[in-house]
Write a protein that binds this DNA or RNA. Structure first.
Length: 288
DNA sequence: CAAGGCTCCTGATAGC
DNA sequence: TGCTATCAGGAGCCTT
């Protein structure tokens, strides 16, 4: 499942392979892949052809490619199974190919492949959000913890003013972006916090440590090229990351905790799973 | 307005 | 063998 480290790996690949190139053709092959582009596939094609990609940007799990000569950009989101692959035009289309960009140099194409169709592409306008510039449609997405302008103390104050639990807050992209189910569980395990802890009752040092653990788990995953849990995630060259070997909680049901040896537990949570060590990560005391 | 839950989607896998 | 149920989950959208 692509979260911040995987998306950053893809962004770096796009910076290497598509920045500076000019779009020559666009194929929209599945309506769901461009459902967020309300003006439709013809508009998407017309507005992309002839445009040169000037950079590759990211905030949280969103990617965007600013286009030369205008305030617009191509936004990409991988959803839970999206891949952006650079492939030669002679390579046959795979079964889940949703969109394709070709370039006027005739070189490698950019293909958007997405089995579960939660991801998508859209054009959007960049708005000024000093000192960064983000697409209008993702202005509600908070900065991520690897952003130099992420304000730790402000986030901590915000958390302590909220009436919610810490795992919910980690997954709220309007509060802190880039965190999904895997890295939420990993950061909470590293910080020895149970996901059901109420944010307003966590100390500032505990929240500071959680941010630190989030950053180290992201950094570790980036070094490994991202996590590939079910082989749906690959970088732009089609190579899987191998960070899943380093996970301490997520997907480790019944395996001994790397700290204390107690078996990792899984609970159903919001139509998904949470993995944690029942010994290192004590659930909150029930309110009287 | 904040918080929480529903829903979109496909393919692998388990169970009968 | 072939069917149905379950699971994976990001994030927009809706309800409370």
């Amino acid at each position: 499942m692509p979260e911040l480290p995987e998306v950053e790996t893809v962004r770096a690949g796009l910076a290497r392979w598509v920045v500076g190139r000019t779009v020559a053709g666009v194929d929209s092959l599945h309506p769901r892949a461009i459902r967020r582009h309300l003006a439709g596939p013809v508009d998407l094609t017309n507005r992309l052809i002839g445009r040169r990609i000037s950079s590759a940007e990211r905030r949280g799990k969103y990617l965007w490619l600013p286009l030369d000569g205008g305030p617009d950009c191509l936004i990409g989101h991988l959803g839970m199974s999206g891949q952006l692959l650079m492939l030669g035009p002679e390579i046959p289309d795979g079964p889940h190919l949703r969109a394709r960009l070709s370039f006027d140099d005739g070189g490698l194409e950019l293909r958007f492949v997405d089995q579960r169709t939660f991801g998508g592409l859209q054009l959007d306008e960049l708005v000024l959000d000093p000192p960064g510039t983000v697409p209008a449609g993702i202005a509600h997405i908070a900065r991520d913890p690897l952003d130099d302008n992420f304000d730790d103390e402000r986030w901590i104050s915000s958390a302590r003013s909220r009436n919610t639990t810490i795992k919910r807050l980690l997954l709220d992209q309007a509060s802190i972006s880039g965190v999904g189910n895997i890295y939420a569980d990993e950061a909470l395990w590293r910080a020895r916090l149970h996901g059901d802890r109420v944010t307003s009752r966590l100390s500032r040092p505990a929240l500071r440590q959680l941010l630190a653990e989030l950053r180290t788990v992201f950094a570790d995953a980036l070094l490994a090229g991202g996590t590939s849990f079910d082989s749906l995630y690959v970088n732009v060259n089609g190579e899987s990351g191998y960070f899943d070997r380093s996970l301490n909680a997520y997907g480790r049901l019944g395996e001994p905790c790397a700290r204390c040896g107690r078996p990792i537990t899984r609970v159903k949570w919001m139509n998904r799973s949470s993995y944690f060590c029942p010994n290192c990560q004590r659930p909150p005391r029930p309110m009287a």
